[in-house]
Design a protein around this nucleic acid. Structure first.
Lengths: 126, 126
DNA sequence: TCCAATTACCTTGCGGTGCAAGGTAGTCGG
DNA sequence: CCGACTACCTTGCACCGCAAGGTAATTGGA
């Protein structure tokens, strides 16, 4: 404990986001059109309180450029600058489906590896 | 489908690894001492056939420098260069525990967000 | 004996991307 | 008219996985 580098734990959370953040945004957009500011909140509501808008806007721009989402502007009902809403394109839907599959194919193995030494009673094939 | 950018899907898998790869290595080492070449195989066995040794060795070096693992050399029984085995330090065990917790705290929310639009029959409150 | 194959380890340049911080623009209430 | 809030976007930084290439040690066949 002399001097924990602080980093290790904190930093991983950031790295974990990579490769999933775009999928999360896609999935959130799939529910209904969303605007930029909303995402950070929605993610925090979902339990992912670690993402800043500085990561989200560039990602949205990238995805739009890639043709996965499209945008339109609408005035803000709560006063302030107009919002830029995003919705999925067909390619976006496909990407989301593929991404969900990727995610599942990733979570299983990783969970298994991480649990390998943790098993409590070792039950199997009921 | 005209011309899938190839990237999107492929690339995500790489990014997914970030933030989890070190944990996987730690977990694999926790089972028993391992050497570098073994990891790629072990990960592939576990279903993660996407990691190259070019990612693993620098990571191992980083973790050793961080005091999470320690190494010793032993001759290869199958002929060839001597192997460099790694084992966990106390800090490594702690890191692994913390990391597992981080992982669980991450998988839940992400899964929930990704599944949000996927509900099959719309069952509710059973 | 010598060299080719095998096993294993490590390094280099590249590209992609999350983050913190800062800047711009539009609208409303006092 | 101006301060405050909402919302969007950009810049500089640093990290890290990957592909490709290079080195070292041991074995066995020509």
């Amino acid at each position: 404990m002399t001097k924990e580098p602080t980093a290790t734990g904190d930093q991983r959370r950031s790295q974990l986001l990579r490769g999933v953040l775009d999928l999360c945004l896609l999935s959130l957009i799939a529910e209904r059109p969303r605007y930029g500011f909303e995402f950070a909140q929605a993610l925090a509501d979902g339990g992912l309180d670690l993402v800043s808008d500085g990561s989200i806007y560039p990602l949205l721009a990238r995805m739009e450029r890639a043709g996965l989402i499209s945008s339109y502007r609408a005035p803000s009902p709560s006063g302030g600058a107009p919002r830029k809403y995003y919705r999925l394109t067909e390619a976006g839907h496909a990407e989301l489906d593929g991404g969900r599959a990727d995610w599942r194919a990733f979570v299983g193995p990783v969970g298994r590896i991480l649990d390998a030494g943790t098993h409590s009673t070792g039950e199997r094939t009921p």
